[in-house]
Design a binder for these strands. Structure first.
Length: 567
RNA sequence: GCCCCGAUAGUUCAAUGGAUAGAACACCAGCCUUCUAAGCUGGCUAUGUAGGUUCGAUUCCUACUCGGGGUACCA
């Protein structure tokens, strides 16, 4: 609800004697008015029946002289306001400019958003894809609110998974050599196979297991014998990740690697051990999380190598040293929830200044439905890039029938629609909840989907392109349609929505809102012709749909979704 | 075992403790000589179980059932 409208409604209530806690809600049905005020608290204070209070209030407010309010009616315990569509239009159009929806809540504050975080030598799996998409949107939502945002990515290029992959590569070393001539895609596929090979022998064969562990030691010790293979394979992975980031429209300001923090991690834990923060236990060094109502975790293993936990401490230190952030948001899967609680607690013990600044934004799992799901045990994982390709195939099939202007680049449109389908599916649900992804449904011809949103914008584009530049300022027709008023009122919510999204760190708030606007536009489109109209009505509608486009393009932008001219 | 999270139409998602629990997909019935039918209009179907707090509970509390995750040298 726009501030200007809110102020006017508030003034009516104040005149009627309401002093505090003025909150407006939306009535469930169109015919029940545009905004509602609940009388529960007021009734409680006066010791009366809420419905009676609402009735009295409505009577009292009937005689208001405020232009925007056409009527006031009581419905049960609610006082409902009916607004004048023309006044709503004036205020809304005035509000919707290129800065509409932007905030300066975060002015002067710096935020680090850590996302994607795939592990070199391993596949970019579905969870990484979801976190990449969520993280990108969180970044944009914070930037939109005035924060100085740094995008960071933390990647595990040392550790047991690397050792397993190395074991696999050396076991298949001849094939590895031939791979050097092949396409990136094939090289990465090979790495995936090598990892699966190593991981499976690690499980089933004791001798191989010891060899894997030896590789782990070699990585930590910068052993010359593995250096070339390690560096080559690592780079293949990074090139492959970079390709995915570019394709999904993401980029990073800083890539962090476990290899650059592990030594410092050991140092920090040892220093902390002297202060009694960490302690020796069964040959390892642990942080006694159980003393903080959490669980104990190993920070340095009995071989003297740091675990993921110890590296996190050094990483945090680098984050603060390099960026002095006010807030760090780790967009990471929910399986690490308990881990992060302990990690932040341990970090607080050695760096008090980090208290309250570290956040784990829990990412729900991405699950493919039914038989699309494949077992990770068999090595038959659906990877992130495979999923993108699968969706693209579906979109291409649908696009085959569309008549596009000759001058457009069809492949570019297909890529954008594919992106929209994927991103919207992952962002429309609460970021922390699991998302069941259906390749078919996500690109369905109808419904709550990314393509539907792009289609809505394409329809607006098509109309506006036909009329060219027209001056539509300050023109209001005598009659404003119900669907037009509903659209106007929806547009008025955007400013609030973008603020709520930052507060909640949740892109789904924006996604759901954009869908609501699109739906209202489609209703309007079906009942209100624009180009066939004449005079004030036509000009008014042109201005209305221009405003709809502004808000939709902006909102989709916050989701990391680009629009298309036509589709 | 212990800890954390979740459970809403056949399916995928909504709902600051408040009005008749909203959408979308699927299914059924309509709508293109008119701005892109990837659309619109209407219909059908839901709060895991048992208690409690409250004027009022999908929402808060307790127990249970089911599912997911974590739980010492993986990340």
């Amino acid at each position: 609800m726009l501030n200007k409208i809110k102020k006017q409604l508030e003034s009516i209530l104040t005149q009627a004697g309401v002093e505090e806690n003025i909150v407006f809600t939306k009535p469930p049905k169109l015919e029940m008015g545009d905004f509602a005020f609940a009388c529960f608290e007021l009734a409680k204070k006066e010791g009366k029946n809420p419905a009676e209070v609402a009735k009295e209030m409505a009577e009292k407010m009937k005689e208001n002289d405020i232009e925007i309010v056409e009527d006031v009616k009581a419905f049960g315990p609610y006082v409902n306001f009916f607004l004048d569509a023309k006044e709503v239009a004036k205020i809304t159009f005035e509000a919707v400019d290129e800065n509409y929806g932007k905030h300066d809540i975060g002015k002067g504050k710096k935020v680090l958003v850590e996302f994607a975080c795939p592990n070199p030598f391993k596949a970019f799996h579905l969870g990484h894809l979801k976190n990449l998409i969520s993280g990108e949107s969180v970044v944009r939502i914070f930037e939109n609110a005035g924060y100085d945002v740094k995008r960071v990515n933390y990647q595990g290029d040392v550790g047991m998974h690397v050792a397993k992959a190395l074991w696999g590569i050396f076991d298949l070393i001849k094939e590895f050599e031939t791979m050097k001539e092949k396409e990136l895609k094939e090289r990465v596929e090979f790495l995936g196979r090598a990892y699966a090979h190593g991981a499976s022998y690690f499980e089933k064969d004791e001798e191989s297991k010891q060899e894997v562990i030896a590789y782990n030691d070699k990585v930590y010790e910068h052993d010359k014998g593995i250096e070339d293979v390690y560096n080559t394979a690592r780079q293949w992975s990074l090139d492959y990740f970079a390709e995915i980031y570019a394709r999904m429209g993401s980029s990073f300001d800083r890539l962090y690697f476990e290899s650059e923090v592990f030594e410092k991690g050991v140092e920090l834990v040892k220093k902390g051990q002297e202060k009694g923060i960490f302690r020796e236990s069964e040959g390892a060094v642990i942080f006694p999380g159980s003393e903080y109502d959490l669980h104990d975790r190993v920070y340095i293993n009995s071989k003297g190598f740091p675990t993921y936990d110890a590296k996190e401490l050094a990483l945090a230190e680098m984050h603060f040293k390099e960026h002095s952030p006010d807030k760090i948001i780790h967009v990471v899967g929910k399986e690490q929830t308990e881990y992060f609680k302990v990690a932040f607690k341990a970090l607080e013990q050695i760096h008090k200044e980090t208290i309250g600044k570290e956040h784990h934004l829990i990412g729900g799992f991405l699950q493919l439905k039914g038989d699309q799901k494949m077992s990770s045990r068999s090595g038959n994982i659906v990877t992130g890039d495979q999923l993108i390709d699968a969706v693209k195939v579906n979109i291409s099939q649908i696009m085959e029938e569309s008549d596009l202007p000759e001058d457009v680049n069809k492949n570019e449109i297909i890529e954008k629609v594919t992106n929209a389908a994927l991103k919207y599916t992952m962002l429309r649900a609460d970021v922390s909840k699991d998302v069941a992804f259906d390749i078919e449904e996500s690109v369905s011809v109808s419904g709550n989907s990314g393509p539907y949103l792009l289609y809505t914008v394409a329809r607006i584009n098509s109309i506006l392109e036909k009329v060219g530049n027209v001056d539509t300022l300050n023109i209001y027709p005598e009659n404003i349609d119900e669907t037009e008023k509903a659209l106007l009122l929806s547009l008025g919510e955007y400013h609030k929505i973008t603020a709520v999204a930052v507060e909640a760190m949740n892109p789904s708030v924006v996604a759901q809102y954009i869908f609501d606007v699109a739906q209202k536009f489609q209703s309007f489109y079906a009942s209100c012709p624009v180009l066939q109209e004449e005079g004030d009505t036509k000009l008014f509608r042109l201005r209305l749909i221009t405003a709809v486009r502004t808000v939709m393009v902006s909102g989709l932008g916050l989701l990391g979704i680009e629009t298309v001219e036509a589709m």
